[in-house]
Each structure stands twice: as C-alpha cells, then as structure tokens.
Design a protein around this nucleic acid. Structure first.
Lengths: 403, 403
DNA sequence: GGATATTTTTAAAATAATTTATTAATAGTG
DNA sequence: CACTATTAATAAATTATTTTAAAAATATCC
C-alpha cells in the first residue's frame, strides 16, 4: 500500500484536537493551556505543541495573560482576528445584507442591498453584482475566505441547500448555492432564517448557556426557532419548527398555503396592519387615523402603542394573545426555559410579552411555566447575521478537514 | 500532591475508550477489532489490548468469526451475556412489570404484579414486596446489578427522578427513587413511559436507524414520544412531548387537567369508550350491543371493528382523525420521517393508521408528508421495557465511571 | 489443488504522549 | 524586601501508542 493513500491515526487525532482547540476558542473567546488540556482530555505539553502549530498556521495567537488568585498568571490564547473571512448573506423579503466576519465575530466588511427576495431567475441574476463586489473587496483586503453562509426564508434543507418554498433558486443550471460557491470559492451552507436567528441568540444573546430555548419572529409569517439540548432543531429535512401553518381556527381565514385558519393568518405583520386599517375604517379613535393610510406599517403601530394609543395597544394585545396561544403548543412540545421575541414586534417590549405571557399562563399546564421566561431580543438584526456565521463555523469545524 | 488524588490522563482516556467499546457493542451487537479501531479512532493493537482487559473483567467475550469477502476472517467480539443485570420496572396505571435484562437484551427474569399506580404512600409500600422478591431472585442467580430503570407515566424529570404528576412518589423520607436504590443497590434512572417506548422503537424496532421519529400511544391519555437526531427529546425538565393537553376545541369538554378542549378529551381510550356507549344508547346498530355494557373496553371495540362492525369502525375513524389533526401539529414542529402507533389501538392496524394518514394529508403542508411513513409498532410491550433498559445502559456508559 | 491475493493478527521498532522534575512567575506575609 | 506558598511553563524521563513488518489464515483464480 502506498504511503500517500494512508492517513495515519496520529494525523487524524491531531487534526481533531486542533479543531477541538479552535471550537473551544470560538465558543469561549480566550483559553489557557490548562483549560484546553482539560477540555480536550490531553496533557499540557501536548496542547502547547498544538497551539504552537496553530499559531504558525496563523489560526491562533497569544492574547494576553489571564487571572490567577495566587501564583503565576497563565497565558491566554485566542483566535487570530482579521485573518480568515466568513461571508454571511442575509436574504429577506425586504432587503439583502452581505456581511464579512472574521473568526472572532468581528465585522470586516458590510454591504446592504435594496433587493427583495422573489422566486425568480431574475433575483439570482440581480444578486450576482453585489456578490462580485463583496468578493472583490475581500480580495483587496487579502483575506482568506473559509466559508460562506446564507440565511433565507422558506423550507430550506441544510443538507442539500434546496429551498422548497422558493423553488426557482434550485435550478440545476444555476442554483443559489452554486452561485455562492462560484462567487467565493469556499464551502457554502444554507440555512433557514429563523434557525439562524435562534442560533445567534444561543451563541451570543439571551439564550447563551441555556439549552432549551424558543425564539419567535413575526414578519410576513410567524417563524419559530428551537434550540433543543443546545442544538438547532432541524428535523429530517430542516423543516422543523413550522408553527405558522398549524390550524388554530377551523373556520378561519384562507392562508397563503392553501389551508384555513393557520396561525399565520392571525398573527403575521400583514394581518396586524389589516386589522388596524379595519379598526380605523370602523371609525375607532386613534392617533393612527392622522397618518397616511398607505404608510401604516408595523413599526408605526408599535410606536403609537408605546405612546399610549388604545387601538394600537388593543390590537397588539390581541396579536400577543393569539401568538401566545400558538406558542403554548410549542411550550408543551418542547418544554423550554426561555422564549425570545425577535424582530420588529420585539420593539413593543412589555406590550407584546405581557399578552404572550398571559396566554401561556392560560393555555399551558402549570409545571411548564414555572421556570419559563419570556424576553425580547437584545441583538436585533445581528442575531441572524451572527447566527449564520456561527453556523458556518460550526459546520466547518465539525467537518473532518480544515487545519 | 499525593498519588491517590491524581487520576492520570491515560487512565481516563483508557476508561473512555473502554466505554466506547461497550457502547459500540451494545448498539451493534458484535464487532471486529478493525471496526472498533475505526469507530474509536485508535489503532488495532490498542483495541486488542483494551478488549483483552475487558474480557478479563468479564464484560466482553469472543463471539465467533465474521465474514470477509477475501482474506482471513476476523474474530467477532461482543458483550458477555448473562453476567450483568439491569432491572427494569414498568409502572403503568394497569399493572406493574419487573424485568431483569442482561447487556445483550436477553430477559433473565420477570415478575408481573397486579398493582395499579396511584398517587399514594400505600402504592410505594405495596411495591416493596415485589421489589424484594426480584432482588432475592437476582441474588440467587449470582448476577451483578449494574443499573435500575423505571418507566412510569406523568411529568418525570429524569435528572432528579421527581414525578410532578404523581407527587406522593417524591416524599423526601421515602421516594420511589430511594426505594429502588435501596432495593437493588445500584444507580437508578427514572423516565417517562412514552419516552421509554420511543427509545425502544428507536433501538430495536421500526425506528432503528431513523433519526427523526414520533411515537404515539393512546391509553388514559395521548402520549407522544419524540426522537430528534437519534436522541429522546426531553426538554428542560423532561416534560417535552406533552401533546395531550394542547387545546383543539375552544368550546370542548373539560379535561382532567382543568383546561378545556384538550386533545386528551377527544382521543383517549376512555373517551372512545364513552362515545361507544353513547352510540349504543342512541340505538345504533352494532355487535357491541350484545356485550355486557361494563365489559366494553378498547380491545373489544377494536376486535369488533376488525370484524367489520360499523359503529366501531366509525368511532375508530373519528378517533384517528382527531389524533391525526393533533399529530399534524407535531409533524410541523418536528418534521419526522416516521410515526409509530403504539399500544392497544395499534391492534386496529389500517383502521387507525388510515384515518391518521388522511388527517395528516389534510392538515399538513405537502413537503412535510412526502417522506413521512405511518406504521404500527411490531414490538408491543417490549418497546417500553427494552427502551428503559437501553436508557439505563446509555446513562451508565455516558457516565464517567464504570469499567 | 496449489499459487496468489487479500485480510487479520501478532511482534518488534519507532514515534508520540504523558509524567515527573525543574524552573519561572506572582501575590501575600512578616 | 526577602521569603513562602501557589500556579504556570518548560525540559527530561518515562510510558503509551502507533507504525512498520512479518506471520497466519482464507477465498479466489488458474
């Protein structure tokens, strides 16, 4: 057997340990030799050697000295900033964001594009320009692209990158995945946007350290993200967490999905606006009546609610109640310790969390809510972006290759 | 520093590798040296040495020779049968089963007790006799008890063993967990019965090799078990999968939980019997009218349905439809590839799976059901028993100590 | 039915990792 | 401000593990 064909066990073990070091550093920032040795079940001299190698490969560097309550202070090692680039593309129905991260979660570059997601070939073509621009800028900065992540709405199978909702993005001649791979010449990972958000919250936000968390995002529909045992819940094909299309009203409205009385028809942003307008038409007193009818959007409704507008508060309460009712199902099925409210409605703070809490109190068994907390995200749009980046890093480091 | 206080890295590593070998063997039966070496990322000589040690400690033994398409046939090693004992206690509202397993899933002993679970101190006292008897028999057979597992209904926190539904079992003076620990002098693991069942199906039944599975069990209530990514879904406190108490009818019946219109009120065994009797009172034609009113139970209804009785078939169809409606929520949230029907209603075969399928077709988005299969368990009561045993073995081997 | 190719197993040599011992660094103490 | 207790990092010695090589076993081919 030729020597080239056999990769020795030692090599593989070493590579696994190196990836382990990188994982620890990514997760916890800076680490001492002793901490790494403990985490990897290896001795300090071994870790020292591995760190030396990783440093010469410019993955890690000494960051400073740590604290010790008594003796000599340990040296701290961490990932080297500004070296490796991870490209994150956040595609939404409103706009597109392209953000370049390094391994220390620093933003190296950013490009926002006023392009709306639609299920067409034209969309992919329109995307090409911005992608090239970002690729160009990365090249100028002489960064090494190690991975590309893309968060987008719809039913996305992360194993194949196929989007079952926006089918035009999967054409074999020119798929979104291919387009990204060609633009950046690096491994590409696609992910549903809600799942990216909850991952961001788990790694960098309120859910940090918590292993059973739900996140809810109200936009065109209701998006539910689930962290179970510290991992994103994906299900067989990445469709898990589809709360928006469970039936809450047998005699409800027709949903875009073709079914009747879906949660989406009750609690989406568009349904809120619809109700506001209906309320105004009925002649209900509200500051919103002063606004241009066409300009009324969720943000405006929330602003008015915060200012004390009764109609806005009532309708927001109603939305929260419906949402809480739907969430209480998820609470029974996932038994979480925390629910995070993301997106625009989060700006309503207590005005949305309180009705949700109330509904959960009403519809959940007592044992499920004793330790349950409901909170509004502090990360905003960064949750999705950082989450996508974290997903890419996780995929890269779980894969057998790399350093 | 004294030598006794430091456990060397080598020792820990060796112990981890040994546990890894036992895990592989438990999961896959018999393994060759090469297979183990690959799975453990170690060399063949290393594994040979570990196997020798495990053999001298009477954990494993040579089982025979494997197949090879060309050269020398490999020796197969496997767990040694009839040596270590795992005691499984299956507590249900009908009766209690005490089964002694070895590590190869062989039943070494069994005792069925006609005792009904109730939330009282008397129940624990009544349990003492049977426990002692089984402990006695194990001692006579000179088996070494390595773990005790107990599956029981209710909201069970597997970390603490506290049952939040049957609260009298948790008294600090005499809890179920303590009772079991004292009876068998081994680590005790408590687990919700539905979760034990799905684990059994995953390790030994239809769900083997499938990573995203639901199992449904209709008894006094509806029990949903979830396998996500090959692991039991527990949630924060082990309450996850509580499908029975989500509201399906806002104006429905009052449930035992105090809420209204729960799935349990529509699809439990007792509700089926109630409907059968109501149908008979209304004068509907049925073979069931010939039976003694008091003797009518689920099994009888299913027998008659299989014999073609219209009333029985209609009501079973209705039950399946309601159940399917509830399940379609779970399908949206978990995106499974398989749903297994357990328990008595499983005996109805197609008469229950077809209505469930129909409801899922109606209430689920198309992409969720393309790869979804619905099937009736082939394991029967052994699913729960073997599942509990598997859970104990998993807990023992994941723990840091042992061999 | 013997030669060959393939695979497993064992033994010896080579390498890698851990331990132990030593040196370096730092905060508290008298 | 030296001294001690404590912790970290490094170097040398020791122990484990892997590699390499060789032997044993067996199915296929001619």
């Amino acid at each position: 057997m030729e020597a080239n064909y056999t990769i020795s066990i030692v090599d593989k073990k070493k590579s696994r340990l190196k990836r382990g070091i990188l994982k620890e550093m990514y997760r916890l920032g800076s680490r001492t030799l002793a901490q790494l040795a403990k985490a990897l079940h290896a001795s300090v001299p071994s870790v020292t050697m591995l760190i030396d190698e990783l440093a010469s490969e410019s993955w890690v560097q000494e960051i400073g000295t740590g604290v010790a309550q008594y003796g000599r202070k340990p040296a701290l090692f961490g990932l080297r900033p500004g070296n490796q680039a991870i490209v994150v593309i956040d595609i939404s129905v409103h706009d597109i964001k392209l953000v370049v991260f390094d391994l220390t979660n620093r933003v190296l570059d950013r490009l926002d594009v006023n392009l709306r997601l639609e299920d067409s070939v034209a969309f992919l073509e329109a995307l090409q320009g911005p992608l090239e621009e970002v690729a160009q800028r990365i090249q100028e900065k002489q960064l090494k692209i190690i991975g590309v992540g893309c968060a987008l709405p719809g039913l996305v199978d992360p194993r194949t990158g196929i989007n079952y909702t926006y089918k035009k993005l999967n054409r074999p001649e020119q798929s979104l995945r291919q387009l990204l791979a060609e633009s950046f010449d690096a491994p590409v990972y696609l992910l549903n946007d809600t799942k990216a958000t909850i991952l961001g919250e788990h790694r960098f936000g309120l859910a940090k350290g918590k292993n059973h968390v739900l996140s809810i995002n109200i936009d065109w529909g209701v998006g539910l993200g689930v962290i179970n045992n510290g991992e994103i819940l994906q299900g067989l094909a990445g469709f898990a967490g589809e709360l928006g299309h469970i039936q809450l009203q047998a005699d409800g409205e027709l949903c875009t999905c073709g079914k009747v009385g879906c949660l989406d028809t009750l609690t989406s942003a568009s349904s809120l606006i619809r109700r506001v307008k209906a309320g105004l038409r009925e002649g209900r007193v509200s500051k919103l009546a002063e606004e241009n009818f066409e300009d009324i959007d969720v943000e405006l409704v929330i602003d008015k609610a915060r200012a004390g507008d009764e109609l806005a508060i009532d309708l927001l309460t109603e939305l929260g109640n419906e949402l809480g009712k739907g969430l209480s199902i998820a609470v029974h099925l996932f038994n979480p310790e925390l629910i995070i409210v993301n997106g625009v409605v989060g700006k309503a703070e207590r005005l949305i969390t309180r009705p949700i809490e109330q509904a959960i109190d009403k519809y959940c068994l007592a044992d499920f809510r004793t330790k349950l907390v409901i909170a509004v995200s502090r990360l905003g749009e960064m949750a999705k972006l950082c989450g996508t980046q974290a997903y890419v890093v996780q995929c890269l480091l779980d894969h057998e290759e790399i350093p």
